[in-house]
Nucleic acid binder design. Structure first.
Lengths: 200, 200
DNA sequence: CAGTCTACTGAGCGGTCGCTTAGGATCGGC
DNA sequence: GCCGATCCTAAGCGACCGCTCAGTAGACTG
């Protein structure tokens, strides 16, 4: 239950620093967060951070890398073994939106602070993001080619679907009435309607 | 053509500072931007900023206020005089998404840096944002009540529609192939599909 | 028990931050 | 020609930034 994508990080101090950094970057932004604040959040003094991470920028990069790999793995897993295009789109968009609700803090960091990455880091992250977008676009294209969807603008519609799922992290609040499951199901339903899929 | 929402700001120096601040906040974030950088962007020395704005936070607030009032006015204007629910939704969502494409830099500032507003400022902005969300929700509700739309979850669907239009500012790039007009039209079309409106 | 290694603390370096202030340039009104 | 008002520059204040480093506590090795 309490498991999340940071569990695999060792040693313990590195993991606590990552979690503290995600919390602080999410609340105050990358530039608004001091390394002292992160270290304090992880229960250690300011200098100890540099035992585990070379720089503050490196810490942000590790977060971005882990988060993007996590979402990519989740999406690839979601469609695995599913056959029909509408079912694949439903599974994909459910997983996409649900992930962004469950991990809304981490997701917010990587959406808002992408610009804070240094160019070499940004390039690696951009490549991962292209793979995520391609996942969605390929599903739309395949379903349209199979005659299951009625889509005039594949590129634009796929972009809108990704946008809808990603933007969940901007407005989602866990104290609200909706569960991540609710959000995922509604998003998947709305995406199938966008695609003109036959009601199932 | 070159007209935008800052044209009405006087004197000239205040307007140049606002524009420079929007550019810089958009690129580097609020906390990543120094008052010296803003002042330099407006062609003056660091101290001159404080002749026109009390603090850096006040500058952000003026931006947020102007931007939110601009979008609210545009949306209210868009549906004015339009009668049928589907046509009203199309006009509303076209204007909403189109605005976020045309003013993507300013919109990005107010989406990403809302958390940097001080509590009294944040409260005033939050009230404006609620009015924008209500505009969309009311259109969905009215159309559903009139039997024009097929919506199981009014609140959630309206949220998704706002989300789709707002998120345009995150990914839109003017050097890309799509014009703000294209984006607005596609967004409106997809929203009508989400609502289960009869194809027109 | 001496020696070594790792994780950490606390002090502090150089630099930049938001903001203030003293004073200069330019103006219209008298 | 002098006045006050307005807008600005240059200098600088105290605070805080990312990051470094000498020193230490504790665990492991022989």
């Amino acid at each position: 239950m309490g498991s999340d994508m940071w569990d695999a990080v060792t040693p313990d101090a590195s993991r606590r620093l990552l979690r503290a950094a995600v919390d602080s970057f999410g609340e105050l932004g990358y530039h608004g967060t001091s390394t002292r604040h992160i270290a304090a959040g992880a229960g250690m003094s300011a200098g100890a951070l540099y035992v585990h991470y070379r720089t503050k920028a490196d810490l942000l990069f590790q977060i971005a890398l882990t988060v993007h790999e996590s979402v990519l793995a989740e999406l690839e897993d979601a469609v695995d073994g599913v056959e029909e295009p509408p079912a694949r789109v439903r599974a994909l968009m459910y997983a996409f939106a649900c992930w962004h609700a469950r991990h809304h803090r981490a997701a917010r960091v990587i959406q808002n602070e992408l610009g804070a990455l240094e160019p070499p880091h940004a390039a690696r992250i951009a490549a991962l993001r292209r793979r995520v977008r391609a996942l969605v676009r390929d599903e739309v294209r395949a379903g349209a080619a199979a005659g299951e969807f009625d889509v005039a603008d594949v590129e634009g519609t796929a972009r809108a679907m990704s946008s809808l799922a990603i933007d969940v992290c901007r407005w989602y609040r866990p104290e609200g009435a909706r569960t991540p499951d609710d959000v995922g199901a509604l998003t998947a339903h709305l995406c199938l309607r966008m695609l003109g899929a036959r009601p199932s």
